[in-house]
Amino acid sequence: MHRKTDTLLVIVALVALWQVLHWIVGSVALTSPADTLARAVELLGSATFWPHVAETGVALLYSLLLAVFGGLTIGIALGINRLAGEVAEPILVSLYSLPKITLYPVILLAFGLGLSAKVAFGTIHGIIPVIIFTMNAVRTIPPVMLRSARVMRLSPPQLVSTIILPAALPELVSGLRVGFSLTLLGVLIGEMFASQRGLGYLVMNAIGGHDVRTMMAVVLILATTAVLISAGLLHIDRRMHRRAS
């Protein structure tokens, strides 16, 4: 119970900070929390807002599917083969910390404007953490389990479905959580730079029209949704790790 009130206090403090900032810089630069909330409710009730949500949602969904399944496959393969994993790990780590936005023009040239470029951009952001987490999860499976699998003559698909996936599940959820955040980031950056639809475009469009209220409202909706989804995944993640340990 203590925890919940504390969390609530932090939220209250954040909103208060926002309000104070609003008083300092004025409405032209930063709308007040109440005003932004009103605009957010207005947006959520309007018919023109939802196609943008759908656009971003579809791009995010495709990118996530590609990132998770692609990442799982590559990660399991690299986890099973120790040498391949050792060769790949530093490469993956440096790809992870690369400012991938510099590659966006190449992706636009390769895929053209539209959904596919956004999906590709979201995927390259999300797939690498999923690979790294999966690889490490597979590596830390107790060798005795793999040996018993060999004794029981499990086929590779059976090995993956009965031993590797269940044993690696808690780490996979962690990977999914990081992957989700980065995929969303990738899709939104894609929309901010060259797009005619989606929430990222809406933010850029609002700034172009000096509509700070709308911009703040979309940012609020995005940030809240992202934090809620991530908190949900975090909850599952912690429960699984507790059960595993």
């Binding site: 206090l9 955040s181 939104l188 609002a206 940030a223």
Partner: peptide, 24 residues
Amino acid sequence: ALDPFLATYYAVPFFVFYPVLIVI
């Protein structure tokens, strides 16, 4: 109290704040 916020911090796509910062 801060723990859940730190853990979900990177889920917030920070670049959407960038236009706000430009205004400020």
